[in-house]
Nucleic acid binder design. Structure first.
Lengths: 192, 192
DNA sequence: TTTCGATTTCAGAAACTTCTGAAATCATGC
DNA sequence: GCATGATTTCAGAAGTTTCTGAAATCGAAA
């Protein structure tokens, strides 16, 4: 019962784990998180195993502090959950396995952290900048931007809110709709 | 004809410019660009003016090198265009004014830079990791992720491709659909 | 209450990103 | 081809983020 993680169901080839961890880690910036945090998530996702801090530490060769911080942050993002083992004092961590849930969690968090505060700022700025009668001129672009962000927020709320399958449905629908010619129409049609 | 920029149409209050530049600059990370680059974009967008390098330099108090790099990067992203003035050797830069175009440019670029390469990596990894007969077990999560990313790519292509108004239409439609209760239902209904 | 292993925190070190400013490059008009 | 002025590049400086590891904290069991 040394280091190895306990497998829940499937034997993923080690080179696949390594490759996925590396590729996903590089993606970290897309999410607005650090490389290591993305790597920890990659490890938990691709293996599907529940791991304790030490498992993560040795698998990725990172310090205890870093592993702890990264796992906590992933919990905050809602893409990893804590799991206890009867008769074991360690915490185990498991990644959400449904890609759509992962995506929704990410969108939700990023909106919350990045768009919402921006909108607050923009409203403040607009309201502060002469909301009297003489101010009807220069607000066009500000207003357009605010309106756009609010629209986006509403859209995201809908996708990401309690109506989980809503997004899946809408996306599938839109993706399969025929019509307009896309960039690569040439030879690469998907088999319907 | 010293430093001040030439206004094309509207007198935006200076405190609005400053506020917007700061708020938008903080957003830089959302886009995966530097704070300064976002500030330059903010300045050009909110004023609507075409500015030369020196205008940007003095407005934001940044170095020539930084201004030059940021403007170039914004050109690459396709959210700013070059404009010449007859009889003037300087280059002038003007921000795209349509928020939807800006959004589409950002999505297009980020997909190109961050999702496409990831997909290439993932395909390589999967194909390399025993695509023989015995490999049907551990590929589930990998396959799910690849499929998801491909779906997302197709969706983004549609939104972002030549069929410009498509996104606007779809989004408006989805946003206005009644139904599920959203976070702030209380008092803030949009006047239809 | 004490003990003991697990977890979190945090100050400083390391790694990485962005910025400056001067020099090199480029393009235009003469 | 040369002069002039705009633009780009780039090496090192400044600034920011991330990581480590040891110490503090937490919490379950005896």
């Amino acid at each position: 019962m040394a280091k190895p993680t306990r497998s829940s169901s499937s034997p993923v080839p080690p080179e696949m784990v390594d490759g996925f961890v590396e590729a996903w880690g590089r993606m970290g910036s897309v999410w607005g998180i650090s490389r290591t945090m993305a790597e920890v998530h990659a490890l938990l996702y691709i293996t599907g195993d529940a791991m304790c801090t030490d498992d993560v530490m040795s698998a990725l060769e990172i310090s205890r502090g870093n592993a702890s911080m990264s796992l906590r942050a992933l919990l905050d993002w809602g893409v990893v959950t804590r799991a206890h083992r009867r008769g074991d004092r360690k915490d185990y961590f498991q990644a959400e396995q449904d890609v759509w849930s992962i995506f929704r969690a990410i969108v939700r968090e990023r909106m919350k952290r990045e768009v919402d505060p921006l909108l607050v700022s923009l409203h403040e700025i607009r309201d502060r900048s002469g909301d009297g009668a003489a101010s009807s001129s220069g607000h066009d672009r500000m207003d357009e931007m605010i309106e756009f962000l609010e629209m986006t927020t509403r859209l995201a709320d809908r996708f990401v809110g309690p109506s989980g399958p809503g997004l899946r449905l809408a996306a599938t629908l839109l993706a399969k709709t025929p019509g307009g010619k896309s960039k690569k129409d040439s030879g690469e049609e998907k088999s319907a």
